[in-house]
Design a binder for these strands. Sequence first.
DNA 1: TGAATAGTGTCTTTCAGACAATATGCC
DNA 2: GGCATATTGTCTGAAAGACACTATTCA
Lengths: 247, 247
Amino acid sequence: MGTGAEPTQEAAREPGRVDSPEEAEASRKRYDASAYERPSVTVDVVILTVRNGRLEVLLVARRHWPFEGMWAIPGGFVGPKESLEAAARRELEEETSVRDVFIEQLYTFGDPGRDPRTRVITVVYYALIRADTLRIRAADDAGDAAWFPISELPPLAFDHARILDYTWQRLRGKLEYTTIGYQLLSREFTLRDLQAVYEAILNRPLDKRNFRKKVLSTGILERVDDSRKAGPHRPAALYRFNSAAEQ
Amino acid sequence: MGTGAEPTQEAAREPGRVDSPEEAEASRKRYDASAYERPSVTVDVVILTVRNGRLEVLLVARRHWPFEGMWAIPGGFVGPKESLEAAARRELEEETSVRDVFIEQLYTFGDPGRDPRTRVITVVYYALIRADTLRIRAADDAGDAAWFPISELPPLAFDHARILDYTWQRLRGKLEYTTIGYQLLSREFTLRDLQAVYEAILNRPLDKRNFRKKVLSTGILERVDDSRKAGPHRPAALYRFNSAAEQ
DNA sequence: TGAATAGTGTCTTTCAGACAATATGCC
DNA sequence: GGCATATTGTCTGAAAGACACTATTCA
């Protein structure tokens, strides 16, 4: 204890020496002149949905070197005046024509050698979209795009297998302490729909009674005065987010 | 449902068209020629410790434009062949001469305009170090360095106040479901030491009995056959990580 | 009326949190 | 012996998990 740099008691003081305006100008020039080798920065987007009771991810087929013939997470360069999240949303819209959905930064991958062309640092986002918004085929500037269950992935380019592992792991974690799961459903849904989303992400079956008990006890759902008929059996009640919980 | 790109059933197929070798070569040339404006990439490290019962962060004083005279999170450029984490560890060692401590990536900040000089994308790491390892004064290539309680910060450069907010929030979250708190203690410690770390990070007092009960019930601690004398009162028992839990 | 899914309650265990008295070592 | 901190247990409420039968609608 007490062997660190400066005593904390002086926390309110100002730093000692400061540039004069001339020094500041000189330092700015030095900065601009410093020819640091700049890596390429890309943003990739892991686009996820739940279809057929499974968590699926949208991948694009690579037609060019390197890793031609393999599947990859869609992504691209960040524009000079574009925020990272804006770049991620642009990529998402290019692939799916979908806007205004949940998107969140996941992690940044930047090991040298992960791209054989040059040093590339990739900021990865993940997006959750509802299967029923997927009216439009993925726009494929990469030539070909397809959905894959995240538990049965094809060979992937770059370090993308690791990225998807990490995405899934993070999603499972977030499911427990956020309402992230609702991002994968339309505005009105049955409790069975919601349970299917949870089961798809957690990759294991859940007890129906305990699940309903837990979800309803949070008080964030309200019953819609309607039901969904889906075959020769009792229709299920529809729910939606509590207007108070919408934020 | 079922309106997405390609049917999942075909997940095992190969992508259709692939470059010929000539096309691949051409495409590589296109790639190299594409004069994308590359942003600068820096790595900043939030260096944290617990001193005097408070969570404190190491900041450096800026002497140059912009934000001269304000305090900032230490950081620097990433070397061309250096991984992001290696860059973070290098920065940490430059500031504290400390190596081999817990370090983890936090988030990447890249809004245009966050640095008035040029487009800068900053990958932020945070490091947890034990106060008793701080024998050596921070090497200050930025001129001046000092510890500040994270709850009483001075005016900060760039978007660094936001970064520290986020760091603290993440640390509080991780404390609950990881053993991250132990990173701030030496190999042998008293239960009161550990409680002090938790209280510093959570910024609130904890009940002694409940805390000890919870920590001991995990079974990751084992008693050391020794105690720490610290005044005219009963000495406290020392504990350490269970050898099984070391991993 | 049969098929298929919707909907419901109890018990047990675990965990978190509130709460105060005794034990021990040092001076 | 007095001081200062270490150490310890009970009760209560909340939440999680195991477990199986009845209800409803449609074809």
